[in-house]
Amino acid sequence: MNAALSLPRTTDPTAFGRVAVLMGGTSSEREVSLDSGRNVLEALQSRGVDAFAVDGIPALVDAIRAGKVDRVFNILHGNKGGGEDGVLQGLLDALKVPYTGSGVLGSALSMDKIRTKQVWLSVGLPTPGYLRLGKGDDVHDAARKVGMPLIIKPSCEGSSVGISRVFDDAGLDDAVSLAARYPGELLMEQMVVGDELTVGILADGGGHVALPSIRIVPKGEWYDYNAKYVAEDTQYLCPGLDGAAEDEIRAIALAAFEAAGCNGWGRVDVMRDRASGAFFLLEVNTAPGMTSHSLVPKAAREVGADFEELCWRVLETSL
C-alpha cells in the first residue's frame, strides 16, 4: 500500500493566522500533553507560524474572546478536561473557530472504547471479545464468560492509564479497583497474546492515508505507561510488518478510523494474534502524543515527513 504524501496544501505560514497550541488541561494525561504541546509549538514556530501556547480550555476561551485566536492546534489528551472527548470540539464549532483533528462525533465516540467496539463489530471489523462492567456487576462471573487471560481498563481513558492484565481469578478485584478510580464504565476484554502494533492516519489529498505500521517491542512484559513515556529501551520497528500483512493492517486501521467518524489525523492501535496472525482493533487515538517517544512522528519519517513537516500537515487539517 502506497503511503507517499501528496504536496502540502499551502507553503505560506500566514495562511493559518494566529494559532493557539492547546495543551495541558486537567485530565490524567496532563504531563504528556504539556510535553507534546511544547514540541508542536517549537516545530510550528520554526516554520514561521504565528503560534503560541495555551494551557487548558478556560484559558483558550479567554484568548478567543480577546480576539487572539484564528485556529487551534489541539494537543490536549484525554477526557474530562482533556480535548479528545468531543466537548472541546463542540465548543469550537459553536464559536466557529477551526481546529485540528476529528470533530464532535469522531472524538466523542473514539474516547469511549466500548461504543467504538460496537461500531466496529456492526461493520464487520475485528476487535477482541468484551463485556461492559457496570457498578455492582459480578466481575468473577464476567471473567468466566470472557475467559482468561483478560484485560480490565477504564472505557474512557488513554495512555494505558488504569489498565491491568489479569491471568487468574485472584487478580480480578485489584484490577477492577484500579480501573474504577477513573470516570466512566469499565471494559473487560479478551487478551490477545501476540504483537502490539499501531498505525498512524493522516489527511492527505482529500482523503486519508495510513502510514507505515509500527511494531512495539517493550523491554518488560507489555507496553504500559512507563514503556510509553519513560523507558528508553522500548523498541519501535517501522514498518512493523511486510508484504500482504502490512497492506492488511493498514487497510483495517484506515477502515476503523473512518468507521468511527474520525478525520484529520490519529492513530489506531492493533494487536496481532501470535498463533493465527489475525488482527484485532483496540482503540483510536484522535489527538496522539507528539513526545520524543511518540509513534505517529516515527511513522511519518518513513514517508519523508520530519517532525516539523508532520506538525504542518496536521495544522493543515484545520484549513
Rank of each mutant, 00 (worst) to 15 (best):
M1K: 04
A3E: 00
A4Q: 07
L7G: 01
T10F: 14
A15I: 03
G17P: 13
R18H: 14
L22V: 12
M23A: 10
S27T: 10
S28E: 15
E29L: 13
E31M: 09
G37T: 10
G37Q: 11
N39Q: 07
N39G: 14
L44H: 12
V49D: 04
D50R: 15
F52K: 06
A53K: 07
A59F: 00
L60V: 07
V61W: 00
D62K: 14
D62V: 14
A63D: 06
R65C: 09
G67M: 10
K68Y: 00
K68G: 01
V72G: 14
I75H: 03
L76E: 11
H77T: 05
H77C: 10
G83L: 13
E84I: 04
L92K: 07
D93A: 10
L95C: 04
Y99A: 02
L105A: 12
L105W: 13
G106F: 10
S110T: 10
D112N: 15
I114Y: 13
Q118P: 04
V119S: 12
V119L: 15
S122M: 07
S122K: 09
G129Q: 14
L131D: 06
K135D: 12
H140T: 11
D141Y: 04
D141V: 12
R144H: 05
K145F: 03
K153P: 08
K153F: 06
P154C: 11
P154F: 14
C156H: 12
S159T: 04
S160N: 08
G162Y: 12
G162T: 09
I163L: 05
S164L: 00
D168V: 00
A170S: 12
V176D: 05
S177R: 15
G184M: 07
G184T: 07
L187T: 01
M191D: 00
E196W: 05
E196M: 05
L197C: 05
T198P: 08
V199H: 04
G200Y: 06
L202V: 11
G205I: 05
A210S: 06
L211H: 03
R215A: 15
R215S: 11
E221M: 02
Y223P: 11
V230S: 11
T234R: 10
T234L: 05
G240Q: 13
L241H: 01
D242R: 10
A245R: 02
E248D: 11
R250H: 01
I252S: 01
F257W: 15
G261L: 06
N263Y: 06
N263D: 09
W265H: 15
R267C: 10
V270W: 03
G277K: 03
L282A: 03
V284E: 13
T286G: 12
A287Q: 15
P288I: 02
T291K: 01
H293A: 03
L295K: 04
V296R: 08
P297L: 01
A300E: 07
R301I: 00
R301A: 06
A305N: 08
F307K: 02
E308V: 01
W312R: 09
R313V: 02
L315S: 13
L319C: 05
